[in-house]
């Protein structure tokens, strides 16, 4: 398995229609990512990196081109299948954390598992293990509002790992954090990468991207060779 890329994009194009006019956002992206890589996806706003991230995260489909995820063609799957694959294969980390405000850290971490077939007891144990891993062993029963921004993002990272996904997709994970906390979060992502997971970090900031092993620059819907 490990000789095969976990992600293989072939000539991905994405066209939106804006006020009746077609706008080509991605113009033929081809890309391979091997298992265990730490990738930074860089680009200014309007470069198409958000769209590419949505396609990589199975939140959107390419207009044309092929997308192989762990050996399976996922370019044009129906919504229901995409939901299942997002649940089992992809872990999401968002800039604004997106925790459910009225349930505890533990229950937030368990959330993706609730839509999987993992039994409840296993799920709870796994959530607690992950919260301990991200350094929040003593905060499991806290609600998001009782946690600092950095702590909230740690909860979100634990949540992204709960279904043991192949790929971790982090969209500007430090965008709302101060530089010290940002460093801590990026160190945590590096730790997770070292434990053998594929991490894709989407950012516009070069300093952040330096944590990654490989940088991919996106400009005007195309990959720029660095």
């Amino acid at each position: 398995m490990s000789h095969h890329p976990v992600i293989h994009l072939e000539d991905i194009c994405k066209t939106f229609s804006l006020a009746g006019q077609p706008v080509e956002v991605l113009k033929g992206i081809s890309l391979q990512i091997d298992p265990g890589e730490f990738i930074a996806l860089l680009g200014t706003s309007g470069s198409g990196k958000s769209t590419l991230m949505h396609i990589l995260g199975l939140l959107d489909r390419p207009t044309t081109g092929r997308y192989n995820l762990a050996g399976q063609d996922v370019s044009q799957l129906p919504d229901e299948r995409l939901s299942e694959l997002r649940n089992s294969m992809v872990g999401f980390i968002f800039q604004s954390f997106y925790l459910i405000p009225y349930v505890s850290a533990r229950e937030n971490v368990m959330l993706p598992g609730l839509y999987s077939s993992t039994p409840g007891r296993v799920l709870k144990a796994r959530a607690e293990e992950l919260l301990t891993l991200v350094g929040l062993a003593d905060r499991m029963d806290f609600k998001p509002g009782q946690l600092s921004g950095g702590q909230q993002q740690r909860v979100a990272i634990a949540r992204a790992l709960v279904n043991d996904p192949q790929v971790l997709l982090a969209d500007e994970p430090t965008g709302q954090l101060d530089s010290k906390t940002s460093g801590e979060i990026l160190d945590l992502l590096s730790d997770i990468h070292r434990q053998g997971r594929t991490v894709i970090l989407v950012t516009h900031d070069l300093a952040t991207a330096n944590y990654a092993g490989r940088k991919i620059f996106l400009d005007d819907g195309r990959i720029k060779n660095s």
Partner: peptide, 16 residues
């Protein structure tokens, strides 16, 4: 909205 969107992103199907 964001709670619902989040759940869908994390793999909740429309039916759920």
């Amino acid at each position: 909205k964001s709670e619902i969107g989040l759940k869908k992103a994390l793999g909740a199907k429309n039916s759920a």
